[in-house]
Nucleic acid binder design. Sequence first.
DNA 1: TATATTAGTTGACATTTACAACTATTTACA
DNA 2: TGTAAATAGTTGTAAATGTCAACTAATATA
Lengths: 144, 144
Amino acid sequence: MEIHPLGMIIGSMRGIFPRLMIARMNELGFHYTFDQWVVLMVLAFKKKQDMVQQDIAEFMNKDKSLVLRIVDVLEKDALIARTTDLNDRRRNIINLTTKGRDLTNLFYKEEQLISEKLLEGLTEEEVNSFYKVISHVKSRAQEL
Amino acid sequence: MEIHPLGMIIGSMRGIFPRLMIARMNELGFHYTFDQWVVLMVLAFKKKQDMVQQDIAEFMNKDKSLVLRIVDVLEKDALIARTTDLNDRRRNIINLTTKGRDLTNLFYKEEQLISEKLLEGLTEEEVNSFYKVISHVKSRAQEL
DNA sequence: TATATTAGTTGACATTTACAACTATTTACA
DNA sequence: TGTAAATAGTTGTAAATGTCAACTAATATA
């Protein structure tokens, strides 16, 4: 099978969607970075109970020190709240506040609109393959 | 059709491949950033004659001032050479040096290996759909 | 009880993001 | 022909990210 090396493909497209989303959210008056939004959305679509910083870092495949800095900003803006896990005081459980949830609802709507525009013209099968490949790549990467 | 908003998908996977590639190239003794490699690879797989900084910036969907800084570093390391376009002296034509070409050949091999590992287990059809979606998204993004 | 591991924090430095403003040059137009 | 607009590249800047190490506090394990 002919493999297109992923470097230039990733290199040329990875900023596209984030930039479109950020531009739109800036228009609406919200000046958060893309990763800040991702953290909020991870919490909105909670993958498991009692998400902690380490969980978010793993999901985003980012260094925990970066997640800490993002969480600091979002907490300062009262979009999330951090509480100590009473079962394990090393862990901070992170939840969206009401204000945070309002923002993630808004982001989600805009995200859907832009996603629809970008994917318009593709078949459902093609889009599903796209998601499957991404999910597969994430799994494979964890094994390497 | 059910659309998975692209935010968290992009947010969780965009750093995977770059990080794997950078780790591998660091092992081999090359300490360039991912975007520095992308610039080299863009020049190696020349999309057109007489690539200039603006062309690279457009391909990478990045600000021209970033491309300038990357080009400065690569020129300093003698991986590329910059010459003024005699037909239009605003433009700098950028070419790989022999040293630069050696490095891109090496990067390409490693890129192929890692890509193969990440895509192993997927059908050719699924991978082709993946590339098609990406190409499509890039085109659509330029229209928005 | 001592050691190893984990979660989070802090710090440091290079690079990127995202603009604006500038210079030099070319193109368009009156 | 002269001027304005546009283009390519350069410089500057503040904030954020990438990436790593070293640290503290807490938990797990031998």
